[in-house]
Amino acid sequence: MFFSRVILTSLVLFGCLAHARYLVERDSVADGRIEAKFRSKIVAFLQRKVNALVSTKDNPNTNLINLAYSIAEDNDYTFAVLRSFSDFNANILNIGTERLEGCTVLTVVSRKAVYMAHFFENLAFAPDDGKAPDSAFEQNCINQITGRGQTWRTRGDSIDPSLFTGNNGPAFAYIMTPRQEQADPTRQNPNPPVPGPDTQLYAERMRQLSQTLTSLIPGLWVVYYNYIAANAAQYEEQDAQQHRGKALFEYDPNADGNNNANFRIWYEQNMENGQGAGLFA
């Protein structure tokens, strides 16, 4: 696996429940564990896969699901999908999105199913809509996941805990969320440091999200990947870093050519898989 992990035992940093196990991603690029010769292959693979994704508005039965859901230009909706692997015995399932500019992506996976959601920053975390309710985070994120209470600007599925517990467990939740923002340069500090991989822009919201998930799915492993958010202009300028802002999940029922299933999940150029997580042999 490309990831290294650090298990956090502090109940203060993320407000963890005592029985939950929380892990934080380290930046594998920074410590040099992905060699340069593999980066171009990873970038090309991710770009090809993401380009093939389509909206369920256009094809409700697609196995190539784009999580970027908009009714019209600049009219975005949080979007979530729940898929059972038993429905994909003959087809590869891909779910993902790209060019994240501060949004959060959640992927919950077990041996039986995957739940993947894209929460827009300007809806759930920092609403810029004058009509946003005071409880925008709860209505746009938490209630969408649980299927309880009123929702606002959401589409798609809620989670079914039975697919991730009991004989279907254990389960992992992989959360891709922005790091703290870099300070503006000043005369005294013209080159402020880039926030480290353990920092989170919305740490309190991540604590609330994690508690919601672990209450629904006891024993859930929660894995964070804290990314450096870029804006649209920066994406245009960074052709050499086309992995940035991409999130992709892939389930293959014949991953090894011998009818053995596996999944892979990429957050940017960092990858986890079902065998590494102990979910598939």
Rank of each mutant, 00 (worst) to 15 (best):
A277F: 01
D134W: 10
D252H: 15
S4E: 14
A72E: 15
F14V: 08
N66E: 07
T151F: 00
M271L: 03
I34K: 05
T154N: 09
V194A: 11
F249R: 05
N262F: 10
I92G: 13
G196F: 11
P161N: 11
D252C: 13
E237N: 12
Q139L: 14
D160E: 10
V29T: 13
V108D: 06
V50R: 07
C141S: 12
I65W: 06
A132K: 12
T212P: 08
S86R: 12
P133H: 07
I159M: 08
G96F: 02
N63F: 14
F263R: 09
F125P: 02
P161S: 03
C141A: 14
N258K: 15
Q234C: 00
V223I: 02
I265T: 06
T212G: 10
G166T: 07
P185R: 10
N262W: 05
P197W: 10
A136N: 13
S215C: 04
L53A: 11
G156W: 03
G166W: 12
F45M: 13
C103W: 00
G130Q: 15
L213A: 04
G276H: 02
T62L: 10
R205S: 14
N167F: 01
G274Q: 04
Y115R: 08
H19T: 06
N91T: 15
Y225S: 12
S10E: 14
E121A: 06
Q269A: 05
D129L: 13
